[in-house]
Design a protein around this nucleic acid. Structure first.
Lengths: 147, 147
DNA sequence: AATGAAAGGAATCCCCC
DNA sequence: GGGGGATTCCTTTCATT
């Protein structure tokens, strides 16, 4: 992992579908060694994959909400049940176990506020072991995705 | 935007670097119309771009922290100054203006806890108009990125 | 470990359906 | 709006330095 590898990662983080030929030109290499490096970065797990960034509104997910969750009990089985259940909700885009006032921070994407109300009442409330739920509705996103 | 478009988005969201030929086969189209659809989705802004997913630890960003920020003043100029300053911090991966107990929710990535302490004291504390900062350190990520 | 050439394959465009 | 075919570019491998 040298400066060239870091340059490759920096380009691919922003332009994941750039051709190997263009990528090679950007980092000052010929296509062959550039491709070798990309393959090595992929196989070693440094590059985990590639994603298209989709406009949420175009797929009916205009509303982004962050949710702080406190659990009722912290025994291993209770925690596992909650974690299992939360990862099965398709609305939950990200889920983190965190320190501080909350046990978990979830990021969910839904169509609109009525859809969130429905999710809150019928999905979150039915998760096992949930004590409290604090919702933070996104009004504006200043920055999304970086590297 | 029909079911085929949605199928294309679903595939590209998970395999952003799939070849057009393979993508066409997946959605039951021949390469030509498939490429036309992808180009249309890109030009209309439904597809915003493509990103490689990089292992944070491989680029010295092993620690992910969520930060709730409350501002001291909410006059337009004060808000603008904060927003401008926060988007210039490279450690800040995401920044959202939210409802609820906090004004902003930031997501930052740094090397480790000492690095975060430094960021907290020397970068966040120097942002204009910041009243309070609440840190939520990620211990485990259950799910990251979805579609 | 990078280069350059060469072969195979894919993307892309045009035209027809 | 979808399919087929020709061209062009890219990817990929291998021999070489």
């Amino acid at each position: 992992m040298d400066d060239v590898d870091r340059a490759i990662l920096s380009v691919l983080a922003r332009e994941g579908r750039i051709s190997n030929a263009d990528l090679a030109a950007r980092v000052g290499l010929s296509p062959s060694p550039c491709l070798r490096r990309v393959n090595r970065l992929e196989q070693s797990g440094v590059i985990r994959g590639y994603r298209a960034v989709i406009d949420p509104a175009a797929v009916g997910r205009s509303l982004r909400v962050f949710i702080g969750v406190r659990l009722a009990r912290h025994a291993r089985a209770d925690v596992a049940a909650f974690e299992q259940a939360v990862t099965e909700l398709s609305e939950v885009v990200n889920a983190h176990h965190i320190t501080g006032n909350f046990d978990y921070l979830l990021q969910v994407e839904v169509a609109d506020l009525p859809a969130y109300e429905h999710f809150h009442a019928h999905q979150l409330a039915e998760l096992p072991n949930v004590a409290t739920v604090s919702s933070y509705v996104t009004m504006k996103t200043l920055r999304r995705g970086n590297a």
